[in-house]
Design a protein around this nucleic acid. Structure first.
Lengths: 207, 207
DNA sequence: CCGGCAATGTTGACATCGACAACATCAAGC
DNA sequence: GCTTGATGTTGTCGATGTCAACATTGCCGG
């Protein structure tokens, strides 16, 4: 007699950690951070409710890892949105729009990344490091814009923080339904607002 | 024999609803939205774990009420920050700084208001209405700035959304520890960024 | 070839939580 | 003075996060 045990569910999962992460990302996207449940993740991965503890020290640990993956996706989205555009100021705007677009596309994931269901309070933790990578996309664009003369020279950090604050605020408010526009209008609004930020005290050509 | 029942805890609490609200606000401030517990609120109010259900339909209902109270406090903070300042542009900046100051002072309360532990998804729900009052402080300042010539005429809403996004982004990032400045520097940064936003395409006096 | 060992997965249990139901207590009005 | 509805309590249930104890497996040295 062939053993009754299901042949497709070996006792040791080939790559449980990754399967749990995938399930967690999907679940977060479906039900949001609040309804996110460690046991449901295990269920979806087809393992017992305690198996995740062999790969993550706690629920928060899993969520932190999910957040890190989110930052990587965010970085890729911004870079992809920039494409091969040459103009530094356009690149900055495109990065900002990519930021907002990512937030609108995966609002729950975005929430975990920032309104940290679980992020540690210290600044120099791992997810923050992953976030620095995304921040650097903005910062590099700003530096390039300064070198090209699109932005006045000087410390780029204030510009970067301003730009980040603006797109982050737009993203959060839009997700919360506080900006009464549709998806496209929000992206349009983002680029206009970012463009305004680019040309503050600089020379105005006409009028 | 005198009954053992404590004389200072009458069966019917004089104003349980308010007591629960106060306890909830305090608890949220102490432990944050995630660790917030309906039973702990009841404990602090000195009632059984089910008493809150006579005044709030659910945990989310209580949190929503807490959020509404937060919006009222936010509105008062912004107005108080404006004081009796006359200059419309200064009033706008002061309102924005008040917004950020409130967020920095009660980050957990702020989180419940926006990253709604509980807020309904629809836009026209009660906490959003309470939020409109706060939004109107910004909007009124912008309209006044337009009338005084500090801001170009036209639809004030885009200006209002931009200003809101900026201060909201600053607030959220600052709370998350993503802006490497102290409290005062953040407020300073806020007013500078808001001032930049005020003078976009308008006349530049020198250079 | 095999025997043990560390890694990985499972079952069981516990405290806590949100919510529901049934019961207790009180106040107000006929 | 009794009833009735509002308000507070106790009891309970299912679900959850986490710990402990146990089971299974792949691997490595003999």
């Amino acid at each position: 007699m062939i053993p009754k045990k299901q042949i497709d569910t070996p006792y040791h999962h080939p790559n449980l950690r990754q399967a749990l992460l995938n399930a967690a990302v999907t679940l977060v996207g479906e039900v949001g951070p609040r309804a996110f449940t460690l046991r449901e993740v295990a269920r979806r991965a087809g393992v017992s409710h305690n198996a995740p503890y062999r790969h993550f020290t706690s629920k928060d640990d899993l969520l932190t890892t999910v957040a890190i993956e989110g930052f990587e996706r965010l970085t890729r989205t911004m870079l992809a949105n920039q494409g091969s555009t040459a103009s530094p100021s356009k690149r900055l705007i495109l990065a900002g729009c990519g930021y907002v677009e990512f937030a609108l596309k995966w609002p729950n994931h975005f929430a975990i990344m920032f309104d940290s269901g679980a992020a540690p309070p210290n600044v120099d933790c791992t997810p923050a490091n992953a976030g620095e990578e995304a921040f650097r996309v903005l910062l590099d664009s700003i530096i390039a814009a300064q070198q090209s003369g699109d932005l006045p020279p000087g410390d780029p950090m204030p510009h970067a923080f301003t730009a980040w604050s603006l797109v982050h605020g737009i993203a959060k408010l839009a997700i919360g339904g506080n900006l009464p526009m549709d998806h496209d209008a929000i992206l349009n609004f983002t680029s206009i607002a970012a463009l305004r930020m680019l040309t503050p005290h600089s020379d105005r050509a006409k009028s």
